[in-house]
Design a protein around this nucleic acid. Structure first.
Lengths: 203, 203, 203, 203
DNA sequence: AAGTAATCGAGACGGTACGTCGTGTCTTACA
DNA sequence: TGTAAGACACGACGTACCGTCTCGATTACTT
């Protein structure tokens, strides 16, 4: 049921959609957000610009759609037996995702654009942020089951806490990788985990 | 020794430099990163485009320098008597800086560009990242003087540690404010400080 | 057969062509060759600069085409009954054309440029020189019909002769008007015609 | 008497003047009028732009001065025994002068510029046109002495006639060489001379 | 000698135009 | 109706010259 009016005329080519999104990702890798142009994407996809604009309103929406799929490969969390091991593992997996050229370049660009575009902000939150937050919840549950962390009594505080931990983990990794521009290796992951678990005072 | 060949010819106008950076910040506020153009900045500064390009290679480098000044200006670390108070204070100041329209819109954009541009990456590191690391060093020194933190014996480890702490603090604030898109208020700052100082286990 | 590939895409606007050439002539009158700019012509024609560059490689070629149309329009050769009258008439018409501000200022300028630019030289020859040679051919034909001039037997010599006569007439008028800087009036035209028809010895 | 105020201060370098004019001619040959720039001339001459502008107001005046000297190498007229031989000879000499790249490109450019600049027009007339007119007078005198041409009774008509002949000769050669863009060789010179002496009717 | 005043080189300055590129819309002919 | 091709108006790009200016460093003629 794609709407009542879609019954007449030539139907849109589904192949074109795929070709365009593929071309967008390829262009993103080769050129980065700044040099990516609609005309270039159209040419790569073997498609007229018209076709492109008929489906997406502009560069922003196109790139977000093209990139969103990448984050759908969910980061899973195998139980490694201890809180520290679980954290280290998720940090390294997240870092590996950020190392991929198409995500690296696109993530910050889309975030930058979202500061000016409410709809985009919501889209990012749904497609990327919230989706990964469950990892924090799952890790905490396991640690509590192991007795490494105390049970939370207040549900609101628990949620607030999970948000906080998520921002700390994701933020530290992103900042290290993209702003400081240094690699997130095992050594760094160990140091970070130690700090997160034990705190500044816990040395 | 500002270079051997700079003794001849008319010297560059220091006033122009100032006017350009001011104009850049103003344009950033009014138009945002996306609509900001070199020509517009030049016009606002009452300066020829040539003058602008003689000093900066493009929009990216210009904006980095313009924004870097804000960091220098707005981030300092008054001694509030305890490690926790110092951290809370710097977190809130940093968050306030990120709320300003000229930083909010520009910071992520240049970071995004920097994933494809080594020179830009270096410039960001020098002009912003490395300069603000002083806050971490200063805070740690004070905490050590107060006896809140132990002295570091290994200088390399100490430096690595400072980098880590910087990424955690800056990353968490940026992620909360720009990616998660939620406000960094006093309550969040208190929670974050507690986590950082005491760790997950330190409840 | 206007070319094989011209069947697809939106066809070029014929109206734009007209508007651009008109605007060029107007700008030439108001500003002269030196101050005429492509941007200004585009603006006058209500056309984007791109549209202009899609059709002409630059100022030179544009002006040649704009001026060539004037030659076509203003030079013809009504049959005045005698060779002398025909020559006098074409001399005066040509002089009047050279007096117009759009031709006066532009013609020598493009000729000057053409000394360094083979393509431009060819364009001038096709668009202006060769087209006006028809006047010589027509005049000679009529004079032969009237019995004023003998018939040519050798076709090659006839062509060479027409070229020579054209250079003499056009050259003398241009030199008088633009180099010597004196007016081409009826008296001069009469004197010139007498010289051309009768020769130095023909007194 | 170079004026009252020129007595003190460092005198202008005569060497610079020479270097600049040489550089201008060289640039004219290499680049043509259109691509010649003040900055380039200054660089070739090993001189600062300031020095150049202190002596000439702009490109026009500079080039006219640089080129004027070339026309001073006067075209002489050896007596070859007949009017036709004298004309042929002067035509070929004039053509040779126009073949030189520095004159070819500069002459038309300066003439074009003169359509907008009265002072320049006067300067050209004095430095170039009038100077060569004496060749016509000399040739006519000789032809009259030989009995090839009748004596003129009316002095005014004689002067008018000389002007006319000059425009015809110079104009035809310039038009053939620069506008039609074909070479002025011996064959053309012979044909032209025959036409000039005998007229269209004199075949 | 010391002073004065115009020159010199270098190169930055505010402008203006350049010719190119990307955007998003439009107009064709064809499917 | 969709589509490929490509022209269109718009506006920014980064560069090139223009002619002027500000420097410090030479030259000459004064006193």
């Amino acid at each position: 049921m794609t709407s009542a009016r879609a019954r007449t005329g030539r139907p849109r080519s589904a192949e074109a959609d795929r070709a365009i999104l593929d071309a967008t990702r390829a262009a993103l890798v080769e050129l980065g957000w700044g040099k990516l142009t609609m005309g270039d994407v159209a040419a790569r996809a073997g498609v007229a610009k018209t076709t492109l604009y008929r489906r997406w309103a502009g560069k922003n929406e196109l790139v977000v759609d093209a990139v969103a799929a990448l984050f759908d490969e969910h980061l899973d969390l195998p139980d490694l037996g201890s809180l520290a091991a679980d954290i280290e593992s998720v940090v390294l997996r997240f870092a590996a995702l950020l190392e991929r050229p198409e995500t690296k370049t696109a993530l910050m660009a889309v975030v930058a654009e979202s500061t000016r575009d409410e709809a985009l902000r919501v889209r990012i939150r749904c497609a990327i942020v919230d989706r990964q937050k469950r990892l924090v919840l799952l890790g905490r549950e396991r640690a509590q089951a192991r007795g490494e962390l105390p049970l939370e009594e207040d549900a609101t505080a628990a949620a607030r806490n999970a948000d906080l931990i998520f921002d700390v983990i994701a933020g530290a990794v992103v900042h290290r990788a993209l702003v400081s521009g240094q690699s997130v290796d095992e050594e760094w992951a160990r140091g970070f985990t130690a700090l997160l678990v034990g705190g500044l005072a816990g040395v």
